[in-house]
Design a binder for these strands. Structure first.
Lengths: 196, 196
DNA sequence: CGGATAATTCAACAAGCGTTGAATTAGGAG
DNA sequence: CTCCTAATTCAACGCTTGTTGAATTATCCG
């Protein structure tokens, strides 16, 4: 317990430990509610280390949220195939990503976005402009219509994430991923190609 | 500016002022981010008044969130009529309520629920047990199926609220209420009576 | 008119926050 | 072997927070 002062022997994993702890704390509590001291405790290091490696709490958050998922790659994968079951593929892949460890960075971003405009801006930009609109643009060329459909899809997907990962509404929270995807898919499909 | 000490002359609206300011601040910022001092400033009173009237910050929040909407009454109104367009009526009435001043109390509750388990519990209880499941129970008597359908509807409705009022995703945020309700209605209807 | 009560301001408290600077120790370069 | 740099702990700072108690003034009941 009485940690010795000064640099310890051997290689250091402190930086990675902090990032892991930060991802966990930010995604559980959101930006303000998570504390630098709390993250340091979880990581098992002195709070000063966080400033040593990341400068400020905000920079740590941005490092935490620097998504390990490349939207471009994801998009291309989902877009190959018929548009008839695009809703199904999109729903399935979406849940896969959010169920993965990468999802917790997303939850951190979402939780914080519900509290801070600067974070909400990041999320809007990512969700609409970078992810959804490009998909829809391959189906509907009219930008107004594409934006409207993208917005509708966003309501369903955001609601899914909030209900499953943040509010933990049962039975959605513990539902089987495939079953949930199957139930949501027709909704996405209608927003993509149906009457709206 | 130099407010005189002691009780002022005339009737007092302070209590109501505080409640109004609290609703605004809580719904804009969420529970922790909103401060007692900030609410007092908006209300134009001393912070001590808040404790005088409400005791603690948490009690003030609960008073703020004591919804001015009676779910029982709302339910009966929505449930009268054919089940074929129940989704449509539900979507329309839902948006009406959230567009009304009563909605900002809801947004406060939601924002806080994304941060605090005790608030999430309130919201879950309200949303699922008190609001959605009773509706579905009138259609499907199997409790497992009813719970599943209620969960699905919750994902769509929660997502609608988060996108429109919290994240302010365009074009959903400024969309015409009726048009938005019409686009969402088929989704609700399928979750109510369709194949899931 | 007198006394209880309610409304208000002010000043201060303890606790928790993010952040900083100095001290200490190890590793690596020349 | 000797510096320089990087990693770490510790102690403290200034700030903001929720909350409290005393002082002050008006209203209301008898």
């Amino acid at each position: 317990m009485t940690a010795r002062r000064g640099r310890p022997a051997g290689a250091s994993t402190t930086r990675a430990n902090i990032l892991g702890a930060a991802r966990a704390e930010f995604s559980e509590r959101g930006y303000d509610t998570a504390t630098v001291r709390g993250i340091a405790t979880v990581a098992g290091v002195d709070p000063a280390m966080i400033h040593h490696f990341f400068g400020t709490k905000e920079k740590l958050f941005l490092a935490t949220v620097d998504l390990p998922v490349d939207p471009q790659t994801e998009l291309r994968a989902v877009l190959t195939g018929s548009t008839d079951d695009l809703g199904s593929r999109l729903a399935a892949r979406f849940l896969e990503v959010w169920d993965s460890p990468a999802g917790s960075a997303g939850v951190a971003l979402l939780r914080t976005s519900l509290q801070h405009e600067w974070s909400a801006k990041l999320l809007r930009e990512f969700l609409l402009v970078r992810a959804l609109r490009p998909i829809i643009h391959t189906i509907h060329t009219d930008p107004t219509e594409a934006a409207w459909r993208a917005g509708l899809i966003a309501t369903q997907l955001v609601g899914l994430v909030v209900a499953r990962y943040v509010l933990k509404l049962e039975p959605v929270a513990s539902a089987d991923r495939a079953e949930l995807a199957a139930s949501i898919a027709p909704t996405i499909q209608r927003y993509l190609t149906g009457t709206v």
